[in-house]
Write a protein that binds this DNA or RNA. Structure first.
Length: 602
DNA sequence: CTAGGGTTAG
């Protein structure tokens, strides 16, 4: 090899960009005796550049393909590398390109080996290309690969699992002579992905019975199933299994454990585990932030976010969605606005999850105009975006705008779902639009194939009841195809309160107590009905009857934000450091109100 | 050069 050739090879080694690579390529063709071997020399570097750095296949696909087709007698490995590289790209068109390469090599007479097939199947799974996957499945049956290579069978199972064809996953699993840990894990994953959580966990126990020992990956999936089930007892069982079998707790497992304990309601233990984790990543923090919010511990969730800020860990979009969710539920507009500014500053696009969370946050914090602006600024709106703004507008009493936005949905071809209709019906209810509400309720099933849930029946009872159509509301409940629950009876009792229906109220209260005997809501509403009809004696009797029972009280709770700190107040709560002064001020206000002739209502 | 892992809204 002469010095010029060595120089070229050296250049190739240190080449860092596609542009440089193309220059070397041009040089090779024009002046080097190596020109015939140019594709062979360029090709590996091109693959590695496309896979290791930010150079996307998208921009270089044509170049990439031209090199590959110019290779003389390309070895299967070259195709394998290309397919592997394409299969790890995010873009689904690259996955189809991987399938195209697979076809091309078959046409060239090359025989795909036990590496090619898992790669191309991975590409299919990534883009959920079920049709293409099925064709490759057929190829594997014909060549006998399916039976002889466990990798092939497992990646095929994975393809069907991500496409939601759980029956095909199970069939492959059942028909397989050798099942390793990956086969079992993929089967479990298939069930969990489909929401068949119990089946997934049952499969895990079957696996244990088959004397296979689970590793970290399997357990992460099983823990996430327990988390979604909210079954603490089951979750603890899995945790015990891990301790018994000395499963190594890496950051994935740690996160899954924290998440499981949070979603199953043991927040204290979750915090303890979180604190003890030797290594935490952004997902650990996200798990805490959204998990605490899931448990209604919004203030604690924001405290965790603040700690995350203090250690200087950069939040990602999942963090921000969680924080916005907590802001929305606490009404903490200031922090919500800060998140919005942060999003703008970091050029995160306010679309998808983030946009929807922003709309919801502004709506729940009372800035409906700002919510609307964000909604309008979103490029990609989905059913969640529409529902957030419709529910928000309904909450703010702007039924007209809520319904007008709802009427846009068919034009942009977004199907409303059950929650959208909660917004639509409550908009009608608050505006007294009885006929419209009835029309929408009817359309829910006749046009959109949605089955009304008790919440929707509750909205309808509220709609009729508020409008004073108490008899119609009762009739509506009698004709319900499902058993009325607390939602429905509560709505009717509320209507009795507004319209001073004492006798009906008494019978509705009994119904409400039948379905929800241990909550105080029915008593409170009824005692309010008595009080507002000046039946003080009855109100007092009811309060006394309540005291004798051990009722679950829905605690009155409010919060304010001051200089970035959330202060939370519960009924009878004296834990705030300035509690004495606060109560003193409240008393002052009450006595001043009295002086102005205001009578406390309850 | 092979397969299976965690967090996300109304």
């Amino acid at each position: 090899m002469n010095s010029q050739e060595l120089w070229v090879l050296d250049r190739l080694k240190s080449c860092k960009t596609i542009t440089q690579l193309k220059q070397i390529h041009a040089f090779l063709i024009k002046t080097s005796p190596l020109r015939l071997r140019a594709p062979q020399l360029i090709y590996p570097k091109l693959i590695s550049l496309c896979t290791t750095s930010s150079y996307s296949f998208g921009a270089n696909l044509t170049y990439f393909r031209s090199i590959l087709t110019n290779l003389e007698n390309p070895h299967v490995i070259l195709y394998n590398n290309a397919i592997k590289a394409l299969s790890s790209a995010q873009n689904s068109s690259f996955s189809l390109e991987a399938v195209a390469l697979f076809r091309a090599m078959l046409i060239k007479g090359l025989v795909p080996d036990n590496y090619t097939v898992p790669y191309v199947l991975k590409a299919c799974a990534q883009s959920q290309a079920l049709r293409e996957g099925e064709q490759i499945h057929a190829h594997c049956i014909k060549t006998g690969m399916l039976l002889s290579i466990v990798y092939v069978k497992n990646t095929l199972m994975r393809l069907y699992a991500v496409c939601g064809v759980i029956k095909a996953v199970q069939k492959l699993f059942d028909g397989s002579p050798q099942r390793d840990l990956v086969s079992w894990t993929t089967l479990i994953q298939g069930y969990v992905k489909m929401g068949l959580l119990r089946e997934g966990v049952a499969t895990f126990f079957e696996m244990c019975d088959a004397n296979l020992r689970a590793d970290e990956m399997t357990l992460v999936i099983v823990l996430s199933a327990c988390s979604k089930l909210g079954d603490l007892e089951l979750g603890r069982k899995i945790h015990d299994y891990m301790l018994d079998n000395e499963v190594n707790s890496d950051v994935f497992v740690g996160n899954a454990l924290v998440n499981m304990y949070l979603n199953c309601g043991d927040a204290d233990f979750a915090c303890k585990l979180f604190d003890e984790m030797p290594f935490r990543n952004v997902i650990s923090w996200n798990s805490m932030i959204s998990g605490l919010a899931h448990q209604g511990k919004f203030k604690e969730s924001l405290d965790v976010f603040r700690k995350m800020q203090n250690i200087g860990l950069k939040p990602d979009d999942v963090t921000l969605v969680g924080v916005l969710n907590s802001c929305a539920n606490l009404g903490v507009l200031e922090l919500g606005k800060w998140v919005h500014a942060y999003i703008d500053k970091n050029r995160i696009k306010a679309d998808g999850y983030i946009g929807n969370a922003l709309v919801d946050m502004y709506a729940k914090c009372g800035s409906i105009d700002q919510a609307f602006r964000v909604f309008q600024g979103m490029k990609n709106r989905d059913v969640y975006s529409y529902t957030a703004i419709i529910v928000g507008l309904a909450m703010h009493g702007d039924a007209e705008k809520a319904l007008s936005i709802f009427s846009e949905m068919p034009i942009v071809r977004i199907e409303p779902d059950e929650v959208t209709f909660i917004g639509v019906l409550s908009a009608c209810s608050h505006a007294g639009l009885v006929a419209e509400g009835q029309k929408y309720f009817e359309e829910m099933s006749s046009v959109y194939n949605l089955i009304p849930q008790t919440e929707h029946y509750g909205c309808m009872v509220d709609l009729l009841g508020r409008a004073g159509l108490i008899y119609e509301a009762e009739e509506f409940i009698r004709n319900m195809p499902i058993e009325p629950d607390a939602f429905v009876w509560g709505a009717l009792l509320g209507a009795c309160r507004i319209h001073g229906k004492v006798e009906l109220g008494e019978s509705v209260m009994r119904k409400l107590l039948e379905v929800e005997p241990d909550r105080d809501g029915a008593y409170i509403l009824m005692s309010n009905i008595y009080s507002s009809s000046n039946k003080w004696r009855d109100a007092l009797k009811l309060r006394k009857a309540m005291k004798g029972k051990n009722m679950k009280k829905t605690p009155g709770c409010s919060s304010i934000e001051l200089d970035g700190v959330v202060h939370e107040f519960r009924k009878g709560d004296k834990s705030h450091p300035k509690s004495k002064e606060i109560y003193k001020l409240l008393e002052d206000i009450m006595s001043q109100l009295k002086n102005y002739g205001h009578l406390a209502q309850y």
